[in-house]
Write a protein that binds this DNA or RNA. Structure first.
Lengths: 159, 159
DNA sequence: GATTTTTTTTAGAATTATTCTAAATAATCC
DNA sequence: GGATTATTTAGAATAATTCTAAAAAAAATC
């Protein structure tokens, strides 16, 4: 990462005690997952694991990075998303055959997918009850169950 | 389509009365959907809508075409899959962020997805009971509900 | 702190899946 | 059979993702 200007901005901002504590916690999680603590990883972790749950694609995360005045290559973003997923920090959600979505909420849950906006909304697992699951075919074992409810914008009612 | 040899084979095979009846039925469906009846469309329709339900990607369908000794361009296959879907003959199933799957079973149902084999198995809608669906967020309307149960090969039990 | 080692990041190339395009071909209508 | 319209085609283009070699950064060692 070459942009010293942006690096200094980050370092200044990170002198804040709360920020330093967050950095310490994120660093701990990264090390626990066998990942080196690097500036790009910390920056991505902050964007992903702050202010509640998020759904991102590589592209939307890249835009958030740029909006935050940072500079991280797209390749690093793809790389990091996959490493965070393998570390168990993220879950992949498949709702579009041409984009990979990643969810910071790793507990079992389901989703609304708003097709007009390519946007996901979490549905808590308890809000959907699935009974009467079919028998798993022989020789196979269940990995995970996803319920995707595709919705679109309702047409405005006629005046 | 230039391969006269293959074309003659098809035409010879299609003299069979059952085949001619099938061709007439498929032609009727194509016309009803506003699609011209062409050799490639008939050939793809036969592969898709014969012998029960199928799940295909463009690539797997292309291979079936070649295995049947036919020659249809990959662009035509993509084109036709989308036209059949828009005509209501196929449903798209999203289980992988890098491939589009198409299902000839257009009635409401769900799927097992065998991740080791990239293969789908239908689950009849009645085999899964979803109760307690959450309220649709304001301004949105439901399009469709998909349940995907991801499974993989079970490890062989230790001897 | 400097050096060495290892890992990561990077920019751009490469790959893969899908879509686009202009020209040729085929289907339909007359 | 000719005219018109739609489709097919091969290959280019696009988009999303992965790969690569070199540079940079992080960690370990001294």
């Amino acid at each position: 990462m070459r942009t010293m200007y942006r690096k200094k901005m980050m370092q200044a901002k990170n002198k804040d005690p709360a920020a330093q504590d967050q950095k310490a916690q994120l660093s701990k999680r990264l090390r626990a997952a066998g990942l080196r603590v690097t500036e790009p990883r910390l920056a991505l972790a902050r964007l992903l694991f702050t202010d509640g749950n998020h759904h991102v694609t590589a592209e939307t995360l890249h835009k958030q990075v740029q909006a935050a005045g940072l500079s991280i290559s797209l390749a690093t973003i793809y790389n990091s998303l996959h490493q965070f997923m393998e570390a168990g920090f993220l879950r992949q959600i498949v709702v579009d055959a041409n984009h990979s979505y990643f969810d910071t909420n790793i507990s079992p849950h389901h989703h609304f997918f708003i097709t007009d906006e390519n946007r996901l909304i979490d549905i808590p697992a308890d809000d959907i009850t699935i009974t009467n699951l079919p028998a798993i075919p022989d020789g196979l074992e269940m990995k995970r169950v996803d319920v995707i409810i595709r919705v679109n914008n309702a047409p405005a009612p006629a005046e």
